[in-house]
């Protein structure tokens, strides 16, 4: 035996659970309400199965909601786009509508984990898992997405800014399901971008995620949104940074001040991937890169 006959380390098999597969939303809500904290929703499974193997979660009931038809798909609606919570990350990345209207979301969906994971992982799962590093959160923050949450008492729309409460925590309570995400169409002359900074090409948990959008006319910033991931207990908007840019003629000095402010807006921790100090520096670097790139894009459009 290559390890001297000692037993092989436990690969972390999955604990026992009851598997349920409701075919309607009503049935799912009933089950979730009845079993409460002992039930866990299974969407793409790319986070849940890993957490269960690591012993971080041991639900008595697994509720696979993928058999519920109306939770999937992308459609144009009310001057915006509605994305079903079970829509996979690859479906979002490959959607022409998303690419044209929400380039930052398209970009973020293209760098999440790996191609295999993106074929399973869902937008709803990415949000509800509420990792501070959730790749799809910063773009949805800059587009001011609204999340439709369904419970026994009916539907509720929550702005994404109010959705995350802490690592792994959201406003979703017992017996509720995230049904869909509504993203309003950005105003004319709005440019947006998502930049992910990590050390590897794939399967990377970001050191810093930055998404930014700017409505810009003749270099004058009419509106700006900057969102940061992996540098606070939840994905956040960098509002002091936004205030440095909004209403101003965008130049290198303004961008520099915004980057400094964004670093102060962030509240990073030190962990295995990077120190808090380094993360704050990288917030500066990537906010600068994002804003510069948006400015260039708008100038190119003005020139072209």
């Amino acid at each position: 035996m290559f390890n001297g006959g000692a037993p092989l380390p436990d690969m972390g098999s999955l604990p026992q659970f009851e598997y349920v597969e409701p075919s309607t939303l009503q049935h799912a809500l009933y089950i979730l309400n009845r079993y409460g904290d002992s039930a866990c929703i299974l969407a793409g499974g790319t986070d849940l199965l890993v957490q269960m193997r690591d012993g971080k979660k041991a639900p008595k009931y697994i509720v696979n909601i993928k058999k519920i038809p109306q939770l999937e798909g992308i459609r144009f609606e009310k001057e915006g786009v509605v994305i079903g919570a079970l829509t996979t990350v690859n479906t979002i990345h490959e959607s022409k509508l998303v690419k044209e209207m929400f380039p930052a979301l398209h970009q973020a969906a293209g760098v999440l984990a790996s191609y295999q994971v993106r074929n399973r992982a869902t937008i709803g799962g990415n949000l509800c898992n509420a990792s501070p590093a959730a790749d799809l959160a910063p773009p949805l923050l800059i587009y001011e997405a609204k999340l439709k949450i369904v419970g026994a008492d009916g539907e509720n729309e929550v702005p994404i800014e109010c959705f995350f409460l802490g690592p792994g925590k959201t406003v979703i309570e017992r017996g509720m399901v995230l049904k869909e995400i509504y993203i309003p169409k950005p105003k004319e002359n709005t440019y947006s971008i998502h930049l992910k900074f990590g050390e590897r090409r794939a399967m990377e948990c970001a050191i810093v995620n930055v998404a930014a959008s700017m409505t810009i006319e003749d270099s004058l910033c009419k509106d700006v949104k900057i969102a940061l991931g992996s540098v606070a207990p939840t994905p956040i908007r960098a509002k002091t940074a936004e205030a440095e840019v909004c209403g101003k003629k965008v130049d290198e000095e303004v961008i520099e001040r915004a980057a400094e402010a964004a670093a102060k807006d962030s509240r990073p921790i030190s962990d295995i991937r990077a120190s808090a100090e380094y993360r704050r520096e990288m917030v500066k670097v990537f906010v600068k890169r994002a804003l510069r790139s948006l400015l260039v894009e708008s100038n190119m459009k003005d020139a072209g």
Partner: peptide, 26 residues
């Protein structure tokens, strides 16, 4: 066995996925 390495990649309805991240009943 956690979706990182891709050694378990199979095609599911024509798309590559990590078979270690899919429950048998799914």
């Amino acid at each position: 066995d956690s979706g990182e390495c891709g050694a378990c990649t199979v095609l599911l309805n024509g798309k590559p996925v990590n078979s270690c991240l899919i429950l048998a009943p799914e």
